[in-house]
Amino acid sequence: MNSTLLVNIFRFVLLLAVQIIIFNNMNFLGYISPFPYLLFIILYPVNGNKSGLLIASFLLGLIMDMFSNSGGIHATACLVLAYFRPYIFKFSFGLSYEYQTIKLNDVLTPERFSFILLSVVIHLFTLFLLEAFQLSFFFDILLRTLLSSVFTILICIIIIYLIKPNKR
């Protein structure tokens, strides 16, 4: 339990640092940027403390907001993703997901992919919706969500493969 906590704190800090230093400066075509920091919420242990996850995601988003001057949009998006995470689990892995041992940082299966896809799309859609804050930009929001999701998912999968534990 203690080591999972440490791993999560480490992940929290590392992902934030990487996001702020590297990925925030990546702008394909001027407006497509990847947001792999939400891997923290995706990789949080399945049976971990749920209120802990909510608070941690809120803080994660809030720090992102501080760095990108965006008020509370990252905090809201992270919080929404953290809250709906169990439902996405249920959708992707079937009803009895809590009794199986799901390891996300492992070989990519259709279930794992659908989980990552759904999480990223929900997070980014909330993010861009709140960022534009008016419905006249609706197609712009959809376009941004679509393009940024593709990049975010690609980078998330690469990171998962990179940090995959080898011992089995």
Binding site: S51, L54, I55, F58, G61, L62, D65, M66, F67, S68, N69, S70, G71, G72, I73, A75, T76, L79, V80, A82, Y83, L130, F133
Partner: peptide, 28 residues
């Protein structure tokens, strides 16, 4: 309840950020 509380705070910050004078804490 925790979710709703935190959601309230973050939405408040979001709405505040879209009005002209913003909160001082959440800025770079």
């Amino acid at each position: 309840l925790l979710f709703l509380l935190l959601l309230g705070i973050s939405l408040l910050l979001t709405i505040q950020s879209h009005s002209f004078h913003r909160s001082k804490i959440i800025s770079s």
